[in-house]
Amino acid sequence: MAALGLLAAGAAFAADEASDEARLRARLAPDVAQQVSAVVREARAAGLPTDPLIARAFEGASRGADAAGVVGSVRRQAGALGAARGALGAASTADEIVAGASALLAGVPADSLARLRVARPGANLVIPLVVLCDLVARGVPVNVASVAVVTAARAGATDNALLRIRERIHTRIENGGAPAGSTGEVVRQWLQESPAKSRRDAAPNSERKKVP
């Protein structure tokens, strides 16, 4: 019975691999498809999500990147996925690993991801990581953005609260505020406005559930 299970898993693995390679060959030049396929195979063997790698290759092709640019980007993405899983923990979801890899590629240090995991034990980290990446993309220095998100998460900020904080910072920056200063002001203001207990009480159950 166990042997049959292993056989079925192996067949599914091979089918996924063949499907990915067919998708890549349909969109990319043969040599590019071959190199990307090799990276995707390694990622799959390591248990990492592979769809983001294929998507990255397709994005590069659509945006007119050259072969070296596409392959290099896919390799960096694969490395970041592995590093994100290491920082966030082996039990992290695929979505968390993808969001974490995006943060690492933006220059967020791996220990910030680990601190975020500690700040929100048992909760999903996708939204905090998305907010962190957004702040960095809007010019907030990486260290300031990391401290802001980790601090808010540690204080019990829900996903919706983090998104509201992001919007407030975004508005201030759009109105001419300095990214770092605006971030600090908004987070400090939020901390003053929201007592930790009430924030924890307001947290939805979905944010307290255990990561599978």
Binding site: E59, R63, A103, L105, A137, R138
Partner: peptide, 12 residues
């Protein structure tokens, strides 16, 4: 929200 990395020259 923006994705932070600009791998191919523009934000997503």
């Amino acid at each position: 929200p923006l994705a932070a990395d600009e791998t191919f020259g523009g934000h997503n």
